[in-house]
Design a protein around this nucleic acid. Structure first.
Length: 262
DNA sequence: ATGGTTGATGGTCAA
């Protein structure tokens, strides 16, 4: 099973790029974040035409929204909400091979202080609530896949400059600690780093504001694919589609593919 | 220290 996760940053604007991702990576399941469209306007028929008859989407006007496109049936689709908000950042679906979580963690604004910045406080609360729920709902023996834009780059090699980003939201110690706690909740395995050694720099996102991104390469690894221990041995190919950042009118995130031999 | 860009939207907000 080939699983792709991608923060598409508007599914309507970038539908042609989605088709290109399908051609390039031949996924069986695609998890999208930031679809930025209400359900009534989601391009469901067009997605089916790409070869994904099983589709679930949970969007809202202008912001956020997640979707799963699949060649296999999606059962028991859930769309949990967190922090008392209905901001459509989480979708769970059960496939025969595994249960899959598509997650979009709040970005958290600019100031890395929960007392000064409500968005940062929300990000931290969101991580705590999802962590507690995962630990209460599942066991590490369950076959689970968790993918998405987690908006945190945990390792020093997940950012272009560890030192310069220590006080930048996405790489602050408090966020990394909470992400590590979430990862520990079910002994999640970081499948990208199982294949690409932690000693190597690895990014999935380059800011739109960063000029000459290819040369300067000031990226971060914000997108992740985790699996529970029973699936760790099933992880095959891992590919970060860096070239997608050079496509015309790109998302600021690139797709990540993980092959699971299940 | 600051500003840089993009998308949805229809003046700003979020990222």
């Amino acid at each position: 099973m080939r699983v792709v996760t991608w923060n598409i940053n508007s599914v309507r604007l970038r539908f042609d790029l989605l088709a290109k991702v399908v051609d390039t990576l031949a996924p069986d399941v695609i998890c999208l974040q930031e679809i930025k469209v209400v359900d009534e306007l989601f391009p469901a028929d067009a997605c089916k035409s790409l070869g994904f008859p099983h589709i679930a989407f949970h969007g809202m006007k202008g912001y956020n929204g997640v979707a799963i496109l699949s060649k296999y049936p999606l059962r028991d689709v859930q769309t949990p909400s967190w922090c008392g908000r209905d901001d459509r950042r989480h979708m769970v679906a059960r496939l025969d091979q595994a249960e899959i979580h598509c997650l979009y963690v709040p970005a958290g604004g600019d100031i890395p202080d929960p007392d000064q910045n409500d968005k940062f406080a929300h990000k931290l609360d969101f991580l705590r609530q999802v962590t507690d729920w995962l630990a209460d709902t599942y066991t590490p023996q369950d076959k689970l896949v968790l993918v998405g834009d987690l908006n945190i780059a945990p390792l020093e090699t997940d950012v272009w400059s560890h030192k310069q980003l220590l006080k930048v939201v996405s790489h602050t110690p408090v966020e990394v600690e909470l992400l590590n706690r979430m990862q520990a909740s079910l002994n999640w395995v970081d499948s990208m780093r199982q294949v690409i050694p932690p000693s190597e720099k690895l990014f999935t996102w380059w800011s739109y504001r960063s000029p000459d991104w290819q040369k300067n390469d000031r990226g971060r690894r914000l997108d992740h694919v985790w699996v529970t221990p029973p699936l760790a041995e099933a992880v095959g190919e891992v590919r970060v589609l860096r070239e997608a950042r050079s496509w015309e009118q790109p998302s600021d995130h690139v797709p990540v593919l993980v092959e699971l031999k299940i």
